[in-house]
Design a protein around this nucleic acid. Sequence first.
DNA 1: CGGTGTTCCGTAAACGTTTACGACGCTATA
DNA 2: TATAGCGTCGTAAACGTTTACGGAACACCG
Lengths: 345, 345
Amino acid sequence: MKGIRQLADRLNISIGTVSRALNGRPDVNEETRRRVLEAAAEFGYVPNQSGRSLRQGSTNAIGFMIESGNSADNGDNFFLGVVDGVHSVLSRHHLDLVVLPCSTEEDPAQYVQRIVARRLVDALIISATHRKDARIEFLDKARIPFIALGRSGTKGTYPWLDLDFEGVANRAIDRLVAAGHRRIAIGVPSNDINLGFVFLDACKAGLARHGIALDPSLVIRAASSEQGGYQIAHELLALPEQPTAVVLIYEQMAIGLYRRINEAGLRVGRDLAVIGFRESPLSRFLSPTLTCFRMSLRDLGIALGESLLASMPAYAEIYPQGIVHKIWPMELVEGESDALAVAGR
Amino acid sequence: MKGIRQLADRLNISIGTVSRALNGRPDVNEETRRRVLEAAAEFGYVPNQSGRSLRQGSTNAIGFMIESGNSADNGDNFFLGVVDGVHSVLSRHHLDLVVLPCSTEEDPAQYVQRIVARRLVDALIISATHRKDARIEFLDKARIPFIALGRSGTKGTYPWLDLDFEGVANRAIDRLVAAGHRRIAIGVPSNDINLGFVFLDACKAGLARHGIALDPSLVIRAASSEQGGYQIAHELLALPEQPTAVVLIYEQMAIGLYRRINEAGLRVGRDLAVIGFRESPLSRFLSPTLTCFRMSLRDLGIALGESLLASMPAYAEIYPQGIVHKIWPMELVEGESDALAVAGR
DNA sequence: CGGTGTTCCGTAAACGTTTACGACGCTATA
DNA sequence: TATAGCGTCGTAAACGTTTACGGAACACCG
C-alpha cells in the first residue's frame, strides 16, 4: 500500500534516492533529503521491516528470552524490571526489543534454534542459565551475538552478567558467624539452574574462611517457591542436630519457611536466623522483616543491554568494552529475621 | 547460508516443490514430502521469516504491548502472568508472541503506528487502555486485528476483555454497607487510564443501590503506587468529616495507606475499613491482611489470546466466536482489613 | 485412438527494500 | 579545449520465500 515506490512516485524521484535519503547516506543532495523526509512524514511512510531485513540480512531486533510459566505466580517481577532497563538502552539505537517467553514445556535449546534459524532477531539475551547450557553451546557455535544473564558452567568466550553471589554469600555468612552461628543451613534450588551451584560454592567458601565446614545435611534443595521454603523448614526441623540459621537463595522460599517455623511453635529471628537473597516487595512485610540484598533491576537491565551491544561488531565503536564479564553488586538490607538475639544459644 | 535453494539442490528437486512440501500443500507426492521433511530436519532448515513475511504479507507474530517502567518496581507481576497464558494459546498455532514494552517517555499511539507500519506483527494486544485511546482509533481505522485488555471510552467494533469492575465494586460496597459503613471513600488513579473511571462509576452505582450518594470529596485521585496510597490516606485524614471505609483500585496503594494510617496512631480494620482490588502476593502479608479479589492471570491470558484469534479472519473457523466483549470474573478473598468490628462506630 | 481429467512438479514472478554500479552534468585544472 | 574529479541520481540486481500458471506423464473413458 504505502511502499517506497509510492513515495518515490509522489516526489518524482527514484526509489534509490529515497532510500538513500532516508538512511542518511552522504550521496544525496541536502535539499532532496529534506523533501524526502518531509514527504515521508506527511505520507506516513515507514520502511517495511520484512523487506529491509531480507535485503540486509539483519532485523534490528534483539530478543530477550525469558522463562515464563513458573515464576509468574509468585510475584516475581524480576524480568519486567530488567526488561525495562534493556529496552531503554536499545531504543536509543532504534533497536526493537522482543521478549520471547519460553514455556516450561518447551526445550529452551530447541526454542533458541528455531528463533535463530527464522532470523527473528539479530542477537539474544538469555537468562536462567543452566549448569550446562545447550543454548550457549549452540549460540557460540552459530556465532550469534548474545549475552547470558547468569554465569554458566559451559565454557566459551561469550559475555555474561551475573549477580554478586560471592559478595552476598560472604556478607550473609560473616553476619551470621559474627552473631555466633555455627550451624548454618543453605536453601538452594532443586533444578540445575547454575546460580544454585554458584551460590552454594560461595557459601561454602564463606564458611571456610571462618574455619567452618559445611555439613552436607544442611544443604536443602527445593523448589524456588513458597512450597519449596516450607519443605526446607520441614527438613531442617527433622534434623537430629538442627541449624541455628539458614540462608535462602529465593525470597519466595522465605514465605513458606516462615509458615513452617510458625507451625512448629518457633519464631524466625529468635529460634532461627534467616537471610534471604534478593529483596522483593514482600521482604519488609514479612514478620519479622527479612534481611536480604537489594539492587536496581532497571540499572541491571541497562548494563545488560550495553554489554550485549558491546559484544556486537556493529556497535564496537560506541561501546568499545568488547566481551564483558560483569558481577552486579547488591546492597545489604537489614531486617529482623537474623536478629543478633539468636546468637545466645 | 541454509536457504530453501540449498535444500532443493541437495534433493535434486525444485524449490517450489520443497516449499509446497513443507507448507503442507496437497499437490505434492507423499513420498516426496516425506523426503523433504526428513532432509529439512537433518539439514536444520527453517524458513527465513523475513522472506516469508515479505512474500505473504504477514509475519506469524502477535504483539503484546505493555507499558514498562512504572509498574515494574512495585512488584506488579500482572503482565508476566497474562503473557504466559497468551503465549500458551499462540504457540498452539505456531504463532510467535513478541512482547513490546513501551517506555513511559514514548507516546503509545506513535509507538503502535511505528510497529504497524513496519509490519512487525500481524495483530496486537494492547493494555492499559485510556479513556480516549488514540491507539484504538488508529488500529480500528487501519483494520489491524487487535484486542484491548481493558475497555475504553473510544467506540468501535473491536474486541476487548476486561476485569469485572462492576462485580468487584458491588461486592465491596455491599460488604461495607452491610457492616454499617456510609461514608466510603474511593482511591482511583490520577492518570486517565480508563479503568479508573469504570471502577469509580461502578462504585457510584453500587452506593446508589443503597441510597447513598458518593461525596465527591471522598474520591481521591493518586498515583498507582505506594506513594499514592500514602497520599490518599493523608488527604482522607485531613477531611473535616472522615470516611469509615475506603476502596482502593490498586493493591500497591494499600501499602502506603496502611503506613499513613499507622502514623496517625490509627489502625486499619478498626478505625478504617479497607478493601483492595486485585490480590497480590502481598495481600496476605499486610497487617491486617487485605480483603481483595482474586483471579487467574494465566487463564485471563488464555482467554485474551483466544479472543484475539477469534477476531482474525484467518482463524474464524477455529474460533468462531467473532468479536468478543468479555468481562473477567474475580473472586472475593476475605481479609481482616474490612473487619466488621468497624461497623460499630 | 482421441479426448479428458488427475497428479505431480518446474518455472518464474512477485513481495519491499538496500546498494553496487554507472551515468550525467558541472567545476576546476592543465 | 580536453580531462579529471566531484556531487547527485537512476538502474537493476539481489535477499529468501510463496504461489499462480502451465506442462509432463499417466490413467481412464468413450
